[in-house]
């Protein structure tokens, strides 16, 4: 039979802004070994932690519909920070890639 190994399945995760901080640490970006931002830490008590759906190791493909592909670390993290800061929305939508 066929065995599926490491299929990347994009998942949309909506994180409500329910705490003062988003609370994720990310590494990566264009021109590094990790070409898309990858979650390395989730801080306790933060919005990401309370939401409960983000996980260490997940890769962020899009933020509020904006693709992070090709963005260097500084630009990608700025997109994430501004999505959390804006008062236009009381949530941030992440398109996440996770291995199933």
């Amino acid at each position: 039979g066929l065995t599926q190994v490491g299929i990347m399945e994009p998942v949309l995760i909506r994180v409500p802004k329910c705490a003062s901080t988003l609370g994720i640490a990310v590494e990566g970006g264009a021109n590094t070994r990790q070409t898309l931002p990858r979650i390395t830490t989730i801080q306790k008590g933060s919005s990401a932690h309370i939401c409960g759906r983000l996980r260490v190791g997940q890769v962020i493909l899009e933020v509020n519909g904006v693709s992070l592909k090709g963005m260097e670390h500084r630009d990608a993290t700025r997109v994430i920070a501004e999505a959390y800061k804006t008062k236009d929305k009381d949530f941030v939508d992440f398109l996440i890639a996770e291995f199933n």
């Binding site: 901080t21 990790q34 830490t41 993290t77």
Partner: peptide, 15 residues
């Protein structure tokens, strides 16, 4: 001859 792609590690940012 083997060609290796060496990219630098990334910094980590807390958001």
């Amino acid at each position: 001859r083997e060609k290796r792609l060496t990219l630098p590690p990334s910094e980590i940012t807390l958001l």
